[in-house]
Nucleic acid binder design. Structure first.
Length: 801
DNA sequence: AGCACGCCGACT
DNA sequence: GTCGGCGTGCTC
């Protein structure tokens, strides 16, 4: 008996284990480990998607097992590495294996389900009879086709066997297949001699086969492009020179010959880095490097030349970048170095396009993959190098299940393939930098800027003084500098740490603040859509012209956003041309690129935006960078707020000035003496690292302690609170002695999307009981989960908020 | 998740 | 007495 172990698409605690199915005889030659299958599951005749994670021969019995219904793929979608990886991922992130598998794969591979009712007996209800006759007796069992009362009526009719339910698993990824031929000749010379001299087409075909002896060739393309007729192919097929097969079809990217860029000459520091990494690629060492390089030190060139090394050894390379910096600038650099064997995975692709790119990778049509977080699961084989650029970026941590960190997955894969990992950043995360200190990672520092670029001159402006003479947004110093910069025909980038026009609406008579009905947070005014929006749940309503509480017209708007800043700036410097860039202006597809292109071609003098503008932008004429409110990040109740602020300020500062023009940075702040601001001013990462490590040590935070965040949420505050305390009690008795438990506390924003949130933080250095205890909590809370409770377990959260 | 089963209140 | 609410167990 052939048995398949299947992970089924039912994300629950109780089903998070492989289920064994019989492989029917007609599928025995077709089925392979890693394929998706349709299996019956549970009572009734329900059908669902599953992944074959193991195949074995069980000679004894298996008669009590159900059989696999059908196979969903021509080729496996998982190899052994990815199966192992999903197992590890599920264990370390406390999530279900099925959730892991589905996040590792393109969205299209997640099946959609349909439930149909079929009329099989006599029914009396005239309305229902009509619906059935109009639809060939088979109708989708949903609200579009039936009213609620009809749906319950149908469930009753099922009991008396008047109707039957049928379940359909919809495979969204049904790739089109095409007929292809594959060479079967081993001795080309003999075949050549045997051909009829007049069979010109057959000679052509033979030449083609000689050239591509090992890959399937699409029949349609041969006929169209090579001038070989179907009869020649037929003849070869009859002589068994070729075999025919159906292969999956995808858009073959146009393989134009582009002139490839040559590697640049390296500085001494760069070439030492490249040398070290390349040595490890050659000797297959799974070692992790931390490349700490100041902005402008040429990290990208180090990446490119090490990728080059991997390719020369016939290995592949994976390069991860934060989504936000997946800009044409970096993509073009990789593409123009390595040509068409590069795949780019970014959020702009449709599901179908992502699936196509994914298959090109799986089918080994590409050697280099560049992409954001989820690209870490790219099905490359034989990986020779993995790079994480801007490794400190928090978007590398996924914020829903499975809550993995890209860095951890990268290191896991590097162990699997025995290849080095390169973490690069100008401002490494404290965790990585500390590991480098301990020798877990090897530190490589790039301290010199290439081309002898000078560091920008940084000025910190104390807003507590400025606010007396000017508004709280633009200091006199900044306005003067902007004017001077524009006058010199250069450009300005301004960073504001908040979006929207005003933060909130306040009634001056009754003190009423307009709040979101679903979340405990005030609504934010947006002028472009003329609405008050909630930034958490997306709720919006019209801007009120009187107080909703006391009907007073005496209402005011407080706070600052990009829209307000734009308006104010336009008044202060009327002749300036301003482009605003934030989540609101970049939502539309391609808008991001359009705005940057416009700014790059001098259609504006000032680029005003949120964090979006801090990364990866490279405009030669930007000589002034202004940070309007450096403090907003510092006020957040999170132990990483200083680190975030330091990173942000360092990153934006790097945007000012290029080789021939010295840049200037102006940082406006109410806390001019804060160490994060002072050290960012000096671009002193190492200084910041030492200072911050001391503080983390004193307060017992990462990297001195590991942490797990438990978030308990419910539609009722009572349930969330009650269950939080029950969990706390359980934790107290089931964790190590040294482990600390903080909370439960309501979240800073206690209610979001109508749910109430409580959280518990667990801090520990080493706790062998932790994993089992957390698993147990998930099991113990099953009955509460049924009643709408949710428990999120986040290992090493990026924020405690 | 989604289905069946089984136990309770409130109806013809 | 039975219809249908929901709490509980189980799915190869």
């Amino acid at each position: 008996m052939k048995i398949a172990d299947v992970i089924v698409d039912v994300p629950t605690m109780q089903t998070d284990t492989p289920f064994s199915y019989l492989v029917p005889t007609d599928l025995q030659t077709v089925i392979k480990k890693g394929m998706r299958v349709v299996v019956p599951f549970g009572n009734g005749n329900r059908k669902i998607e599953g992944f074959v994670v193991d195949l074995n021969d069980n000679l004894t019995d298996g008669t009590d097992l159900k059989a696999i219904d059908s196979v969903m793929d021509f080729e496996p979608v998982l190899n052994q590495e990815l199966i192992d990886l999903s197992n590890w991922l599920a264990r370390t992130t406390y999530s279900f294996q099925i959730s892991c598998l589905l996040t590792m794969l393109p969205n299209l591979l997640k099946a959609k389900y349909e439930k149909e009712v079929e009329l099989v007996g006599q029914i009396e209800d005239p309305e229902l009879t009509k619906i059935f006759t109009e639809n060939n007796n088979k109708v989708l069992f949903d609200n579009e086709h039936f009213s609620n009362s009809q749906l319950s009526e149908l469930l009753r009719l099922k009991k008396s066997a008047k109707v039957q339910f049928k379940y359909q698993v919809k495979n969204e990824a049904r790739a089109k297949t095409e007929l292809a031929i594959k060479n079967e000749i081993s001795d080309f010379e003999t075949v050549k001699k045997g051909l009829n001299k007049s069979a010109k087409a057959q000679f052509k075909l033979l030449n083609l086969l000689t050239k591509y002896p090992n890959e399937p060739l699409i029949q349609r393309e041969i006929i169209k492009n090579q001038g070989i007729s179907i009869s020649a192919i037929k003849a070869f097929s009859e002589k068994k020179y070729i075999s025919k097969q159906q292969i999956e079809k995808y858009r073959n990217p146009y393989k134009h010959q582009i002139k490839l860029d040559q590697p640049k000459v390296l500085t001494k520091e760069q070439s030492i880095a490249v040398q070290k990494i390349n040595d490890d690629i050659k000797s297959k060492q799974s070692k992790t490097y931390l490349v700490e390089g100041v902005t402008g030190s040429g990290k990208t060139e180090v990446y490119l030349q090490t990728i080059q090394q991997a390719l020369e050894l016939n290995q592949t390379a994976l390069m991860l970048v934060p989504e936000i910096s997946l800009t044409p600038q970096i993509v073009n650099r990789v593409k123009s170095r390595f040509g068409s064997r590069v795949a780019i995975l970014h959020s702009g692709l449709s599901n179908g396009e992502k699936y196509d790119e994914w298959r090109r990778i799986r089918d080994q049509e590409v050697d280099v993959v560049v992409g954001a977080r989820s690209a870490i699961f790219a099905p490359l084989k034989n990986i020779g190098l993995i790079i994480l650029d801007e490794e400190h970026d928090t978007s590398y941590k996924q914020d829903d299940n499975p809550r993995y960190h890209t860095r951890d997955v990268a290191i896991w894969r590097s162990n699997y393939y025995h290849c080095p990992v390169v973490l690069g950043s100008a401002t490494p995360s404290l965790e990585s930098r500390a590991r480098a200190e301990k020798g877990v990672y090897e530190l490589i520092r790039l301290t010199q800027r290439v081309n002898q670029q000078t560091l920008p001159q940084v000025q910190v402006v104390d807003m507590t003084q400025e606010i007396k003479n000017h508004g709280d947004l633009f200091s006199g110093t900044l306005i003067d500098s902007i004017k001077a910069t524009i006058a010199a025909n250069n450009q300005v980038v301004l960073l504001l740490n908040r979006r929207g026009f005003s933060s909130f609406m306040l009634c001056r008579d009754c003190g009423y603040v307009l709040m979101c009905p679903n979340c405990d947070i005030s609504l934010t005014m947006h002028l472009d859509s003329h609405t008050m929006k909630c930034h958490y749940c997306g709720f919006e309503e019209a801007i009120p012209n009187q107080c909703p509480n006391c009907k007073s017209k005496n209402i005011r708007y407080f706070g600052t956003g990009t829209e307000k800043a734009e308006k104010e700036l336009q008044q202060l410097i009327p002749e300036s041309r301003i482009i605003r860039m934030d989540v609101d202006t970049t939502r539309k597809k391609g808008a991001h690129e359009r705005i940057l292109n416009a700014f790059g071609s001098h259609q504006a003098d000032i680029l005003l935006g949120t964090q979006i503008i801090a990364k990866g932008l490279d405009f030669p004429d930007v000589t002034l960078v202004g940070v309007l409110n450096a403090d907003t990040g510092l006020e957040l109740p999170d132990f990483r707020s200083s680190e975030r602020t330091f990173d942000l300020l360092t990153q934006v500062s790097g945007r000012a000035g290029r080789a021939d023009k010295t840049g200037k940075v102006i940082i406006q702040t109410f806390n001019p003496d804060h160490y994060a601001i002072q050290l960012a001013k000096k671009q002193d990462y190492e200084g910041f690292f030492r200072k911050e490590m001391k503080l983390r040590h004193l307060a017992g935070y990462s990297p001195y302690y590991y942490s797990v965040k438990l978030t308990i949420s419910s539609l009722t505050e009572q349930q969330a609170a009650q269950e939080s305390f029950r969990i706390l009690e359980y934790l107290k008795g089931n964790l190590g002695e040294q482990t600390m438990i903080l909370g439960p506390t309501p979240r800073p924003i206690a209610r979001i999307k109508k749910r109430y949130y409580y959280q518990i933080i667990i801090k520990f250095k080493k706790d062998p009981r932790l994993a089992a205890t957390l698993r147990k909590i998930q099991q113990l809370s099953q009955t509460e989960v049924r009643k709408g409770l949710r428990i999120a377990i986040d290992s090493e959260p990026v924020s405690f908020m």
